[in-house]
């Protein structure tokens, strides 16, 4: 049984002019325990909406979402909220640390909503988690005194402190330079694999996406499996793209794109645009 299972999920919203905007269309996705899945796509393609649905912050318009085999639609709001706090850890692009609170207090915050031992031992657990992400000596430091990478480490510690089953990372390296982003992803991968938590990363950075065991591309609300091979088949410093919409047409990114190993956010966005164009052409041909 999969940990998360989306079947033909759609998400639509009504615009002020009464037109319907279809953000997600027939999304089917399964995530197993301990798996690392990445979703790439351009801005505005519905990546965050997908993540919000996975994290129970939003609900599908149609389709089914099973969490450990339990249809989410059958859960009450309260039960959904409780499962969100217990089973999911969120890592945001802008870190979203609570202002005015130290690193330790930020990591303690989710434990205020836990029960029993986790609640009463919250400071110790938070301190241990911060030590684990390498910030054991910065417990009482305010977020604004920390570097971007350190702030994201605090955010990761906060996401993991309740021992979630799934870590949902929305552009976790989006606000970091490439080197720091790489370090943060190393940490995220390492801790996720140590804790056995599934990791769903949303990014437009292909280098980040390539770290995942499975990759998907989201374009115009449609989720398509792709394959970014990080180690074996790079063109220059760019990972090989294997996209499959219907016939799994395999293509290699054009050489000489000028993309280096330091795939920053903007470069990633450019690359995403290239990907979209390429895949759209594939689709047209198909």
């Amino acid at each position: 049984m999969s940990l998360l299972e989306l079947t033909e999920v759609t998400r639509s919203v009504r615009l002020p002019d009464e037109r319907m905007l279809h953000i997600l269309q027939g999304v089917t996705l399964t995530v197993g325990a301990g798996e690392h899945v990445a979703v790439v796509g351009r801005s505005g393609t519905g990546k965050s909406t997908l993540l919000n649905i996975l994290g129970l912050l939003d609900a599908p318009t149609t389709g089914e979402y099973l969490l450990e085999g339990v249809p989410i639609a059958r859960l009450s709001n309260r039960a959904r909220t409780r499962r969100r706090g217990r089973d999911f850890g969120f890592v945001f692009q802008q870190f979203n640390l609570l202002p005015g609170r130290t690193a330790l207090e930020n990591v303690t915050a989710p434990l205020l909503y836990a029960g029993g031992r986790q609640f009463w031992s919250r400071r110790r657990l938070a301190a241990e988690m911060l030590t684990r992400v390498g910030l054991g000596d910065r417990l009482d430091t305010m977020p604004e005194k920390l570097s971007g990478g350190e702030q994201q480490r605090v955010a990761i510690a906060r996401a993991l402190v309740r021992g979630p089953r799934v870590i949902l990372a929305d552009e976790p390296t989006g606000a970091l330079d490439v080197e720091t982003g790489g370090e943060v992803m190393d940490l995220l991968d390492e801790i996720a694999s140590q804790t056995g938590a599934a990791l769903v990363t949303i990014t437009h950075d292909l280098a980040v996406a390539a770290r995942a065991e499975r990759q998907y591309r989201l374009a115009d609300g449609v989720l398509v499996p792709i394959r970014l091979d990080r180690d074996s088949d790079w063109v220059g410093d760019v990972p090989t793209l294997v996209a499959d919409r219907s016939a799994m047409t395999e293509r290699r990114l054009p050489t000489g794109t000028g993309l280096g190993a330091d795939l920053g956010a903007d470069q990633g966005a450019d690359l995403g645009a290239d990907l979209d164009q390429d895949l759209d052409q594939d689709g047209a041909r198909a």
């Binding site: 709001n77 909220t81 409780r82 969100r84 706090g85 969120f90 909503y113």
Partner: peptide, 13 residues
């Protein structure tokens, strides 16, 4: 924003 973040931690309404 802080309230939203807390909701993501599992804070019920």
């Amino acid at each position: 924003r802080e309230i939203g973040i807390r909701r993501s931690f599992g804070a019920t309404s």
